[in-house]
Design a protein around this nucleic acid. Sequence first.
DNA 1: CGGACATTTGACAAGCTTCAAGAGAAGTGG
DNA 2: CCACTTCTCTTGAAGCTTGTCAAATGTCCG
Lengths: 254, 254
Amino acid sequence: MSAPVPPAVPAFCPPACRACGLRRTRAFTPLERAQLDFIEGARADAVAVPAGFALVREGQASTRLLTLYTGWAFRYKTLSDGRRQILNFLLPGDLIGLQQEFGGDSAHGVEALTDCSLCVFHHDSLWAVFRAHPRLGYDVTWLAAHQERHVDDNLLTAGRRNATERVAMLLLHLYRRLDRLGLADQGSVAFPLTQQHIADALGLSLVHTNKTLRRLSLLGLHELKDGRLRLLNPRALERIAEYYELEPPLMPLL
Amino acid sequence: MSAPVPPAVPAFCPPACRACGLRRTRAFTPLERAQLDFIEGARADAVAVPAGFALVREGQASTRLLTLYTGWAFRYKTLSDGRRQILNFLLPGDLIGLQQEFGGDSAHGVEALTDCSLCVFHHDSLWAVFRAHPRLGYDVTWLAAHQERHVDDNLLTAGRRNATERVAMLLLHLYRRLDRLGLADQGSVAFPLTQQHIADALGLSLVHTNKTLRRLSLLGLHELKDGRLRLLNPRALERIAEYYELEPPLMPLL
DNA sequence: CGGACATTTGACAAGCTTCAAGAGAAGTGG
DNA sequence: CCACTTCTCTTGAAGCTTGTCAAATGTCCG
């Protein structure tokens, strides 16, 4: 938070998609001009929201489709007594609202974790995408399948890994996604999660999350300071989490 | 298994999609003739596999797209020491192989849980679907998003529900999906899962799954006999699992 | 300085896992 | 047709991981 690291992309989504800072990060598949123009036409707005803002409310209908441009958000579900499960974290480039577009209420909520800026698409633009640009429709499906892979990973983590493995998994996974987006700076990344977020993502209690995090830190595996995460021994974390990722694929960006 | 209940659809997928038994169940959205013909043209084969057959191998590339016609299957991931997490169960009408179609190795395996019959689509037919019939492409995305909802539910279950709630959730959820497909017969459905499957789906140990299942059964909430499941007190199960589903939507079927 | 919030630590309880072993059902081969 | 193996279900006991309760410390911000 306090480290004076310049952001990789400007804080606001520029009006022209071809000027989009995200597309310059090499994390996304390049698009043809016609496709880019189409996307630009489907955009209704660019908005900024503060940390904590409810982008999608659990159990409510919402037909807006959003792309996260800067900041972090997360999808979650809750039980009536307050127990909360974070389903996955959303980083720049991730699409929000796919599920809700398909009619019906949202089965999950989406909350901004930091201040965020987003692209807002017109209502019903999803169907228009499929009609006008099958390739982009295909990309949307790719994104849906890709997001499901993240949830699959998290389900394996919550269901079958112990506390140490879970924490190692989370740190590694997030670090790599951020690095991929060019958001790593001299071996560290901004890390705005509270331990409560981590606990809710991993299916652990807050106290136990704290103790596990502490232990890994004392073992010299990572360092969490000033709102930034540094992996001091990524190999050890890989072994613990049993998480060896190959080269991550290029992602489509809408 | 041993109960002499006639199957709701014939055991084999007929060569003509318009004769497809699944489409008569009213669980799926009706299609236009042209769309149906296109799907029929994309079909390469109809196959039957025995229980235990590996439809998709974990970590291997596979570009086949399948639709489950009869029987049960499940998606899973494993850790190197054998711990296994079942991600979700696949029932008739579910699409298999979406993730793998998008290049790269499969991050999960798919195994037939019972004898299954399936429709096999031609390689690259997915992209052809998007090109030729945007509406069907949209449907594929709907299916991807819908499957993710199931995984979301399972993640909430594994991460935040206790053993009793987990088991209640599973019984209720599967019963409803089967009922929806017209596979319920006088208040009971075929239930081919072993307790090991249930344990692996819920992130519990086999022993604890057994004891929890036993307790719910002794409380008169359900009956599991002769390979069939009967919910004796669905309301109580709903309250325990905190799972009140509205009318399930019509699903697309490829 | 006071208040809200995040982190940290200790003690204890509980839920769940592991270990062990027996019973029942189903399939196989002599 | 029966012995044998294999698989699933069942139950008890012990132990460990994780959750809950409680409270102190630290940090940010008005």
